[in-house]
Design a binder for these strands. Sequence first.
RNA 1: GCUGACGUAGCUCAGUUGGUAGAGCUCCCGACUUGUAAUCGGAAGGUCGUCGGUUCAAAUCCGACCGUCAGCUCCA
Length: 640
Amino acid sequence: MAVIVLPNKEELNIAVGQPVGNALEQAGVADAIGIKSGAEYYDLQTPLRFEGSAIPVTLRSKEGLEMLRHTAAHVMAQAVSRLFDNVEFAIGPVIDDGFYYDFDLDHVFSPEDFPKIEAEMKKIIAEKFPVIRKEMSRSEALEILAKQKAKFKTELVESLDAEVFSFYSQGEFTDLCRGPHLPNTGFIPAVKLLSVAGAYWRGDEKREMLQRLYATAFWTEDELNEHIRLLEEAKKRDHRKLGKDLDLYSFHGEGPGFPFWHPNGTVLYNEAVAFWRLKHREYGYDEIMTPMILSEQLWHQSGHWDHYRENMYFTQIDEKDYAVKPMNCPGGTLVYRSNMWSYRDLPSRMAELGHVHRHEKSGVLAGLFRVRSFTQDDAHIYCTYDQLEDEIASTMQLLHELYAGFGFDDYAVELSTRPAKSIGSDEMWERAEGALRNVLDRRKVDYKLNPGDGAFYGPKIDFHIHDALKRTWQCGTIQVDFSMPERFDMEYTGPDGAKHRPVMIHRALLGSLERFIGILIEHYGGAFPTWLAPVQGVVIPISEAKHGDYAREVVKKMKAAGLRVKLDAREESLNYRIRDNQAKKIPYFFVVGGREAENQAVAIRRRDKGDIGAHPVDKVIAQLLLEVAERRNSLSLDKE
RNA sequence: GCUGACGUAGCUCAGUUGGUAGAGCUCCCGACUUGUAAUCGGAAGGUCGUCGGUUCAAAUCCGACCGUCAGCUCCA
């Protein structure tokens, strides 16, 4: 049932599937809303509210916005077909923040074409074409598409398992489409083209590459502008820009995809690792380190040579073949096998900050988010089936506390279960999937189920963090592995004196330190909490000549206390030095002049709050140490 | 890897139709000695991503390669 609010505020109910035009005409408002009488064109599948004007302003449901964007996609396609020759249409779906349409045409799109296309779209919107739905059989549909020489749409119809196919028309433009759509092109208030990129037909890299136009549409100009503002805001937080601005790390042509950590970035990295180590000790982990280069034979045994060879780096040493490790597990299993294991030793949790190398395709590299050399915060837990559930539960708790410590309270969880091609018995899978599911249920976690998406060697839970650009990145993963213990013949002696096979859990919580730090940079916009900040404070003497000695004394005291502070006694104005350090997003400034020197004090300036007055040095140091020790995620020094 | 765009000083960017390279910031020097977001002056800094081609002449036009970016495919 759809409800349309008429200009006089009266509500008009229309059943789903009922032509809207007739109802509106009976109510005498069809013209006002721009719908012609006797319309068969509108298939109402979602509740719709038109509030008192020809522009729908309260079509606020998710479905409503999707309808708007889908119709806008058709308008964009219509504009393109008007402006360019030999245009073939592929598909044009709605996505999270907008929509796209894939085209095949002779012309090569560039952003310079956008104003022209947008202008044509505005024309089509102004022309207020009714959007007319027409249903037909498979053969009728194919006939029409054959006439249009629509290769892609024909392939689409042939691949779809349906009896009825719908076409939507607006003016001279007709497109095969499931719908639903807005009743009229005149209902599109705000639309903007965003970017152009290549995309394979049906996402298949063996098929032809099409040109994809990305765009978005909103119910009001204000919302569109707000969306554009957010995109620009996100750009300012881009870790690639901030990495340069804050001198955290760099990349060089000499090693594409291999990050170079600068002093500032290295502090960030080491602080993150220190926190990670602390939490892992608390949760009963031992830490190990294994070599980066290992015999190729090991990778045959582990199965990586069969499945992962294209992404591995190889080398020869003394005419023997070696591989640079792309994963840490095989090395870890060798550590396990160096000892005899009793059931009393289990569970054993062995963590490794393993530096791995993977030869990723050149086109996928993206700052710290996608690199070829990175450190996984890996760990392998060896346990019995009975211990599986407890181990997974404690791993999830550890992950939760770790994320919270870094300021991430919100993350998405996905459970992936047995794929078609898999190893291990039904019983093993049932127990493992059951354990994962039980923990999620017990913790009342809202999770998405991905049936059949698990690894061939076991089910897994993935954790996704959202970055500033609303992209999601899989960081944490907990995977049960039935394969590795078999392949490496891992055993423990049970209470019965017999040999048993342990279960292996692979888990990484931050995923890749590099990527995680990239996310951290964007999460904080470079303004790190004090415990992570590469430089925690700058001591600024008003005049080097008069107050330099006292400033050096303060720096010495703070450094002795373990704080990362710097002296800025440059012969520049105070204003200049504050501006300069503020741009580096340093949390605290300690301005010292005659008054402070007299009272063994510092005048505190906070990055986010400005001048908060003078306080005794010793007290400031004590408070700062506390802020750091507790790893507070916001600045806490304040006025009395 | 694929499609498209881009690559000029450490950074951010100008550079008209081909005629021999420019600004601001940073760094260095000098003056100023500063009380909470840019004091003034000077000097220095570039084989214009690399290689090749067209031309009397190439940052500019063409080609190949390398790198970066937006996506696609893949993925921590």
